[in-house]
Computed example of a mutant assay.
Amino acid sequence: MQNPDISELAKDSGVPASTLRYYEEIGLIRAVGRKGIKRVFTADVMDRLTLIGLGQRAGFKLREIAALMGRRDAPRLSPDALRARADALDLQIAELQRMRDGLRHAANCTAPSHLECPKFRRILHITKTRRRQGKP
């Protein structure tokens, strides 16, 4: 689609028009003109929206994505920032695997209750400690 207006872009991308306006406001995308009262974008804005969605799924915040992509047409992704996020994902994956294993153990534990299961108690303790430290 050549130069979609905001409603066409919202429909084709699945990103609400209000979100597209916000992305424009913070510099993630930019309109190239107007068709009547509607903003018009270049066709390559779909690539930027795809990169934004990928970045969000990888755990980047919008301001981080904006810094990675720059404010012009061609994104300049920082290899160092990408490596750092990949390292953070590795840590998160390892933590989630430990959590999964602990939950499976608790589900099959023969203790009279989950709160009497030593492994489940460790999960509770780790979660409580992380919450105090401001970590998810």
Rank of each mutant, 00 (worst) to 15 (best):
Ala66Glu: 11
Ala66Ile: 03
Gly70Phe: 04
Gly59Cys: 05
Ile65Gln: 01
Ser78Cys: 09
Gly70Cys: 06
Pro75His: 11
Leu51Asn: 14
Leu82Asn: 09
Ala74Gly: 00
Gln56Tyr: 01
Ala74Asp: 04
Arg57Leu: 06
Leu49Glu: 13
Pro75Glu: 13
Arg76Pro: 01
Arg71Asn: 09
Gly55Leu: 08
Gln56Trp: 01
Gln56Ala: 06
Arg71Ala: 09
Met69Glu: 05
Pro79Ile: 13
Ala74Phe: 00
Leu49Thr: 15
Gly59Asn: 09
Ala67Met: 03
Ala66Ser: 10
Lys61Phe: 07
Pro75Tyr: 12
Arg76Met: 08
Leu54Ile: 15
Leu54Met: 14
Gln56Phe: 01
Asp73Cys: 01
Leu49Trp: 12
Ala74Leu: 04
Gly70Ile: 04
Ala67Ser: 10
Leu68Met: 15
Ser78Glu: 15
Ile65Arg: 00
Lys61Met: 13
Gly59Lys: 04
Ile52Leu: 07
Met69Cys: 09
Arg63Glu: 04
Arg76Cys: 06
Ser78Ile: 07
Gly59His: 04
Leu49Lys: 12
Gly70Trp: 04
Leu77Asn: 03
Ile65Lys: 00
Gly55Ser: 10
Lys61His: 13
Ile52Glu: 07
Leu54Pro: 00
Ile52Tyr: 08
Phe60Gly: 01
Ala66Cys: 07
Phe60Thr: 03
Pro75Cys: 10
Asp73Val: 10
Ile65Thr: 01
Pro75Ala: 13
Gln56Ile: 06
Arg72His: 11
Arg57Glu: 14
Leu51Pro: 11
Thr50Phe: 12
Gly55Val: 07
Phe60Ala: 04
Asp80Ser: 12
Leu68Phe: 09
Ala67Arg: 12
Arg57Asp: 11
Arg72Ser: 12
Lys61Gln: 15
Asp80Pro: 00
Arg71Pro: 00
Thr50Glu: 13
Arg57Ile: 01
Arg57Tyr: 01
Ala74Trp: 00
Gly53Ser: 11
Leu51Cys: 12
Ala67Gln: 12
Leu54Glu: 14
Leu62Lys: 09
Glu64Val: 08
Pro79Asp: 15
Gly70Met: 05
Leu68Lys: 10
Arg57Ser: 09
Leu68Asn: 15
Phe60Trp: 08
Gly70Leu: 05
Ala81Arg: 11
Arg76Asp: 08
Ser78Ala: 10
Gly53Asn: 10
Ile52Asp: 10
Lys61Leu: 11
Phe60Val: 06
Glu64Trp: 07
Ser78Tyr: 08
Arg57His: 07
Ala81Lys: 10
Leu68His: 07
Leu77Val: 08
Thr50Gly: 09
Ile65Cys: 00
Asp80Cys: 02
Phe60Glu: 02
Gly59Ile: 05
Thr50Asn: 12
Met69His: 05
Asp80Lys: 13
Leu49Cys: 11
Gly53Ala: 07
Ala58Val: 06
Ala74His: 02
Arg76His: 12
Ile52Lys: 10
Ser78Trp: 05
